[in-house]
Design a binder for these strands. Sequence first.
RNA 1: GCCAGCGUAGCUCAGUGGUAGAGCAACUGAUUCGUAAUCAGUAGGUCGUGAGUUCAACUCUCACCGCUGGCUCCA
Length: 598
Amino acid sequence: MYMQARAADGQIIEVQSPDEALEVYRHSTSHLMALAVTELYPDTRLGIGPAISDGFFYDFQRGTSFAEEDLAKIEQKMRDLVAQDLPYQPAIVSVEQAIKEFGGRDEQLKVELIKEKCDERLSCYRVGSLVDFCTGPHVLSTGHIDPKTFKVVSLAGSYWKGDEKRDRLQRIYGTAFLTEADLHDYVHRLEEAKKRDHRRLGKDLDLFSIHEKAGAGFIYWHPKGAWLRHTIESFLREDLLRRGYQFVVTPHVAKMDLWRTSGHADYYRQNMYLLNIEGEEFALKPMNCPEHVTIFKTHRHSYRELPIRMAEFGTVYRFEKSGVLHGTLRVRGFTQDDAHIFCTPDQVYDEVLGVLDLAEHVLRTFGFEKYEVELSVWDPNQKGKYVGEAADWNLATATLIRALEAKGLPYQRMEGEAAFYGPKIDLKLIDAIGRKWQATTVQFDFNLPERFDAGYIGPDAKNHPVVMIHRAIFGSLERFIGILVEHYAGAFPIWLAPVQAAVLPISEKFHAYANHVKQALQSAGLRVHLDDRNEKVNLKIREGQLQKFPYMLVVGGREETERTVAVRNRFLGDEGAMPLEKFIEKVNDLVATKAVRP
RNA sequence: GCCAGCGUAGCUCAGUGGUAGAGCAACUGAUUCGUAAUCAGUAGGUCGUGAGUUCAACUCUCACCGCUGGCUCCA
């Protein structure tokens, strides 16, 4: 057993799993925080206060705002309350009693919640002066919470029930762990994540910049970042060609006519950059699909030509609310590795399987071995929300499931999470420190073929609506590169690294030979940097390590005489001298095999 | 967009109403060096932008822009 807890019926129970114990502990700590807050600020009303993956939060309603300096006071108050060892006392009461109790305390949000969730009876917990509507269980008393295991972390705004039309609440985040060591590890993980932050590394490694003057959410790729992009694009382009894709290129701007046909003018307008030139309306494209359908429609297609797999590195522009922008992970202009597969219903299964296969291969190449799969399906009770026939939806959903099962991919079914135009599969990458990132998506689109009247001629010589599958593997290059930076903490595999080797002459006397080495590597197709500053080799190495160059080649008198290079590996340190040709061979081999580590 | 915090030199950050500071980077010079920072000197800022209060604003007030953490949304 991991912990004793008090269940809602007053019984002492023994919590049987560490996960459950942690949840009880955090939930109890969130009540402790709510007690501290309501004692310090009696004009505060309660929202909800659950345990979450990194700790807990509690939402409060209060006329005045909490300030950052209040957090320390709250934390101190919590410690005082721990010292008082107040019991968590459950009670089972009727709905009428509860509404009277919470109504009397002017806790209107709790009253609303109780009316919504409960029929007859419900449980409440009292701790000190705080009474909360709660199913429990909780720790026995505040004395069972170790003051060294929790922290009040941050302040945020939130909405009641997550609805921006409802009351604005103030959320206070905290974290708690069962042991002091766990809390310490958590703080350490946060620091580690901070070191990997792609915004920090993007600046330090000179990959990209964003400019206030030019607009938030637009990325300027510097030479090193651009190399990454080109390398990633070339890799995918070659792979797609092998898999029977064709590439197209479409404009960044189109007349509103096109967006009216596609429906974007009605349903996506608030996200679009609109232009009015000489009285005519245009928009920057927020999606590539309408233009791809436009190309598809330039010919009549026989079923014999299908499937057509039409790919583009398509740059799209979407107005996003200022508060959501985040480095390269959430921007206003980005390039999707987009493709649309036009096919017949009986080709759908093979095509979906092909996309999953592609995703697996691509993601593995970039060092992502693990990912989570979500299948988003419609809500059959709300058929009015969706376009397309039930038969299409059922076929598409069944096909997605069949393909997932064939690949042996476990998945989570997300009821009612499908887009209005079709069901989809999303893959979430899990990076080196366990965080999840949305990347690959495979979506059916029942909307555009109908709106554009896109079809093919079947064996029966009749027109049939074409099946359209939208898919992206990286999602967007901006986001994917941001994820890659954080995944590798900037130390890219050598095939991706913007600088693959740096040549470090130990003094000016060896610049000639260093130049020779640089030329030789460059001629062999490698990306190389010559550090010919008048600095000590120690400094060059330090900076080279911080720049995460995969290899540094120290050259001095010995190397010049013996026509070698002294190889320093970014991870392993000094590897000793080797002939220049041998080094080139070694690196070319690592590049060709796309080795994740040298 | 909403809540809170923040915006000072290229970068990291001091500076609470009275003449703008440090370290690193840059530049100049010296040093010619063997696996994570050589030494010295020089230069660099309308303190995010615009209004207002004041004899006086980096500092106080308001608006706007941007950033950070969340909410909502999303590739």
